[in-house]
Protein backbone atom coordinates (compact mmCIF):
# COMPACT_ATOMS: atom_id res chain seq x y z
CA UNK A 1 0.00 0.00 0.00
CA UNK A 2 1.20 3.51 -0.78
CA UNK A 3 2.45 5.51 2.17
CA UNK A 4 0.76 8.71 3.30
CA UNK A 5 3.73 10.61 1.84
CA UNK A 6 3.34 8.97 -1.56
CA UNK A 7 -0.42 9.41 -1.60
CA UNK A 8 -0.17 13.15 -1.13
CA UNK A 9 3.03 13.49 -3.12
CA UNK A 10 5.02 15.24 -0.39
CA UNK A 11 8.72 14.67 0.40
CA UNK A 12 9.41 11.61 2.56
CA UNK A 13 10.67 13.45 5.60
CA UNK A 14 9.56 14.12 9.17
CA UNK A 15 10.11 17.82 8.75
CA UNK A 16 7.01 18.84 6.84
CA UNK A 17 5.08 21.95 7.69
CA UNK A 18 1.34 21.94 7.96
CA UNK A 19 0.77 24.42 5.13
CA UNK A 20 2.61 22.13 2.69
CA UNK A 21 0.54 19.15 3.82
CA UNK A 22 -2.65 21.19 3.41
CA UNK A 23 -1.57 22.39 -0.04
CA UNK A 24 -0.89 18.78 -1.08
CA UNK A 25 -4.37 17.72 0.01
CA UNK A 26 -5.94 20.65 -1.86
CA UNK A 27 -4.09 19.76 -5.01
CA UNK A 28 -5.17 16.09 -5.04
CA UNK A 29 -8.59 17.24 -3.91
CA UNK A 30 -8.96 19.39 -7.03
CA UNK A 31 -8.50 16.27 -9.10
CA UNK A 32 -10.57 13.84 -7.07
CA UNK A 33 -13.23 15.87 -5.32
CA UNK A 34 -16.58 14.01 -5.57
CA UNK A 35 -18.22 17.19 -6.96
CA UNK A 36 -16.16 16.74 -10.11
CA UNK A 37 -17.77 13.34 -10.56
CA UNK A 38 -21.35 14.48 -10.07
CA UNK A 39 -22.20 13.50 -13.63
CA UNK A 40 -19.94 10.44 -13.78
CA UNK A 41 -21.07 6.85 -13.52
CA UNK A 42 -21.83 5.40 -10.09
CA UNK A 43 -18.68 3.27 -10.23
CA UNK A 44 -16.47 6.27 -11.05
CA UNK A 45 -18.11 8.33 -8.35
CA UNK A 46 -17.53 5.62 -5.80
CA UNK A 47 -13.90 5.32 -6.85
CA UNK A 48 -13.40 9.07 -6.48
CA UNK A 49 -14.94 8.97 -3.02
CA UNK A 50 -12.66 6.14 -1.98
CA UNK A 51 -9.65 8.04 -3.25
CA UNK A 52 -10.69 11.16 -1.36
CA UNK A 53 -11.19 9.15 1.82
CA UNK A 54 -7.65 7.74 1.50
CA UNK A 55 -6.23 11.22 0.95
CA UNK A 56 -8.02 12.51 4.00
CA UNK A 57 -6.62 9.71 6.16
CA UNK A 58 -3.14 10.38 4.75
CA UNK A 59 -3.57 14.09 5.53
CA UNK A 60 -4.60 13.38 9.12
CA UNK A 61 -1.63 10.99 9.50
CA UNK A 62 0.86 13.56 8.26
CA UNK A 63 -0.58 16.41 10.33
CA UNK A 64 -0.13 14.46 13.57
CA UNK A 65 3.61 14.40 14.38
CA UNK A 66 3.48 11.05 16.18
CA UNK A 67 1.51 9.34 13.42
CA UNK A 68 3.77 10.98 10.84
CA UNK A 69 6.83 9.60 12.64
CA UNK A 70 5.36 6.09 12.69
CA UNK A 71 4.42 6.31 8.99
CA UNK A 72 7.95 7.46 8.19
CA UNK A 73 9.55 4.60 10.12
CA UNK A 74 7.32 2.25 8.11
CA UNK A 75 8.57 3.74 4.84
CA UNK A 76 12.14 3.07 5.97
CA UNK A 77 11.13 -0.49 6.95
CA UNK A 78 11.81 0.15 10.63
CA UNK A 79 8.30 -0.32 12.03
CA UNK A 80 7.67 1.21 15.43
CA UNK A 81 6.68 -1.32 18.04
CA UNK A 82 5.46 0.47 21.18
CA UNK A 83 5.93 -2.66 23.26
CA UNK A 84 9.38 -3.33 21.89
CA UNK A 85 10.81 -0.34 23.70
CA UNK A 86 11.79 -0.49 27.34
CA UNK A 87 10.91 2.91 28.67
CA UNK A 88 13.43 4.58 30.92
CA UNK A 89 12.32 3.79 34.52
CA UNK A 90 13.12 7.34 35.60
CA UNK A 91 10.84 8.72 32.91
CA UNK A 92 8.03 6.37 33.97
CA UNK A 93 8.49 7.35 37.62
CA UNK A 94 8.29 10.97 36.56
CA UNK A 95 5.06 10.29 34.61
CA UNK A 96 3.63 8.50 37.62
CA UNK A 97 4.31 11.52 39.81
CA UNK A 98 2.75 13.91 37.29
CA UNK A 99 -0.31 11.68 36.99
CA UNK A 100 -0.62 11.67 40.76
CA UNK A 101 -0.45 15.47 40.87
CA UNK A 102 -3.05 15.69 38.09
CA UNK A 103 -5.27 13.29 39.99
CA UNK A 104 -4.97 15.29 43.21
CA UNK A 105 -5.61 18.60 41.45
CA UNK A 106 -8.77 17.16 39.90
CA UNK A 107 -9.95 15.75 43.24
CA UNK A 108 -9.41 19.13 44.89
CA UNK A 109 -10.97 21.01 41.98
CA UNK A 110 -7.84 23.11 41.89
CA UNK A 111 -7.89 24.50 38.38
CA UNK A 112 -4.82 26.70 38.93
CA UNK A 113 -2.65 23.69 39.72
CA UNK A 114 -4.31 21.61 37.00
CA UNK A 115 -3.71 24.25 34.33
CA UNK A 116 -0.12 24.68 35.40
CA UNK A 117 0.47 20.91 35.18
CA UNK A 118 -1.09 20.73 31.71
CA UNK A 119 0.87 23.79 30.61
CA UNK A 120 4.13 22.16 31.75
CA UNK A 121 3.23 18.88 30.04
CA UNK A 122 2.55 20.71 26.78
CA UNK A 123 5.82 22.60 27.06
CA UNK A 124 7.65 19.34 27.63
CA UNK A 125 5.87 17.76 24.68
CA UNK A 126 6.87 20.67 22.43
CA UNK A 127 10.45 20.36 23.62
CA UNK A 128 10.55 16.62 22.93
CA UNK A 129 8.90 17.11 19.54
CA UNK A 130 11.64 19.56 18.60
CA UNK A 131 14.18 16.96 19.71
CA UNK A 132 12.39 14.34 17.60
CA UNK A 133 12.51 16.60 14.53
CA UNK A 134 16.24 17.11 15.06
CA UNK A 135 16.84 13.36 15.47
CA UNK A 136 14.86 12.59 12.32
CA UNK A 137 16.83 15.14 10.30
CA UNK A 138 20.02 13.28 11.15
CA UNK A 139 18.45 9.84 10.91
CA UNK A 140 16.89 10.28 7.47
CA UNK A 141 20.28 10.95 5.89
CA UNK A 142 22.36 8.60 8.05
CA UNK A 143 24.26 5.72 6.47
CA UNK A 144 23.57 3.42 9.35
CA UNK A 145 19.96 4.00 10.37
CA UNK A 146 19.73 1.08 12.75
CA UNK A 147 22.34 2.69 14.97
CA UNK A 148 20.20 5.65 16.05
CA UNK A 149 16.90 3.82 15.83
CA UNK A 150 16.67 2.90 19.54
CA UNK A 151 17.09 6.54 20.54
CA UNK A 152 14.39 7.58 18.10
CA UNK A 153 11.99 4.90 19.27
CA UNK A 154 12.67 5.78 22.90
CA UNK A 155 11.74 9.41 22.27
CA UNK A 156 8.66 8.41 20.30
CA UNK A 157 7.65 6.15 23.16
CA UNK A 158 7.97 9.01 25.68
CA UNK A 159 5.98 11.30 23.42
CA UNK A 160 3.15 8.77 23.39
CA UNK A 161 3.03 8.82 27.18
CA UNK A 162 3.03 12.61 27.22
CA UNK A 163 0.34 12.77 24.55
CA UNK A 164 -1.94 10.29 26.32
CA UNK A 165 -1.36 11.97 29.68
CA UNK A 166 -2.29 15.38 28.30
CA UNK A 167 -5.34 13.99 26.57
CA UNK A 168 -6.65 12.25 29.68
CA UNK A 169 -5.93 15.17 32.00
CA UNK A 170 -9.11 17.09 31.29
Amino acid sequence: MASAFELLGVPVTFNLNESDINAALRSVGLQWHPDRFACASAAEREHAEEQMAEFNVAHATLCDPLRRAIALLDVFSCPYDPNGVNADPEFLMDMLEIKEQLHDAKQNNDSTVLNKLIFDLRKREQHELAQLAQLFTEWETANNRSQDLPQLQQLLNQLHYLDRTIETSF
Binding site: V85, A87, P89, L92, L96, H160, Y161, D163, R164
Partner: peptide, 10 residues
Amino acid sequence: VVGAPECGDV
Protein backbone atom coordinates in the same frame (compact mmCIF):
# COMPACT_ATOMS: atom_id res chain seq x y z
CA VAL B 1 7.67 0.64 37.26
CA VAL B 2 6.17 -0.25 33.91
CA GLY B 3 3.78 1.30 31.43
CA ALA B 4 1.84 0.99 28.20
CA PRO B 5 2.60 3.85 25.81
CA GLU B 6 -0.50 3.43 23.65
CA CYS B 7 -2.86 4.08 26.54
CA GLY B 8 -0.43 6.01 28.74
CA ASP B 9 -1.00 3.69 31.71
CA VAL B 10 1.73 3.65 34.34
